[in-house]
Design a protein around this nucleic acid. Sequence first.
DNA 1: GTGGGTGCAAATACTTTGCAACCGA
DNA 2: TCGGTTGCAAAGTATTTGCACCCAC
Lengths: 138, 138
Amino acid sequence: MASLKYSRQRECIKSFLLSRYDHPTADTIYMNVRKEFPNISLGTVYRNLALLASLGEIIKITVDGADRFDAHVEPHSHFICKNCHQVLDLHVENEELIQAQAQKNFPGQIEGHVVQYFGLCSTCLKEQQVLSQHAEAL
Amino acid sequence: MASLKYSRQRECIKSFLLSRYDHPTADTIYMNVRKEFPNISLGTVYRNLALLASLGEIIKITVDGADRFDAHVEPHSHFICKNCHQVLDLHVENEELIQAQAQKNFPGQIEGHVVQYFGLCSTCLKEQQVLSQHAEAL
DNA sequence: GTGGGTGCAAATACTTTGCAACCGA
DNA sequence: TCGGTTGCAAAGTATTTGCACCCAC
């Protein structure tokens, strides 16, 4: 029954994810893995991502309708830019407290949590400031 | 330019959302609004949901690839069942602390946050226990 | 050799969009 | 009337799946 077999493609997908600290979409992963496996198909990428996620080796998050993947599974928070939809890691103090609080309220039922923060990333913030200056000038 | 005009369909969509505390998908909303407007189209539902969300009257969250909507905009957390993908409201103590902590770390840049908790809802938890008892019996 | 894994293409799921008709202010 | 809104259908985007072939064990 459903034992696991080695695959070079899966290996490559995982090591690519380990090398990145942003949170690539399946398509970005596909584009990059193709450098090593020119014939790999998107289907294979999706299948392996789903497999790795079910094994707990990677994390899948959905942002604005598109799935994104992360091989860094230690608890951390995400900052999501409202403008460019970029997802960045965020390190917040006392994060364990949030989990502990939830566990206290709902013992045994909560397996994990994710905190997503929203706002404008520094790049988009800068762009917006430039725009409002232009508007002022009129 | 782009002023807002009343529409019975939009009214109906919003009041339906206000009546629910789960987080219906666009399709569920469509099915229900059709009881009152049999000819309404999915496109109209999506257009109004996007409009209401941009006005801040409802919240849009994306879970497992499908958008879900919530007319209860006061800050609260979500519990997402890993099995049936249901989204339930959760009230956690000290939620403001999380926001305050983030603001402290990244002043001025964070506009809001969402906490998602994962696990099995009580229904799915029960089902799983029944299954494992069966497995034991073999 | 056997069963899991792959590539490909077709299918599915979800959402957006163009357009002519419609309706609220 | 004017311009926002609608219904419909077609298009778009993201993801899954069926199948024959391939490869790790």
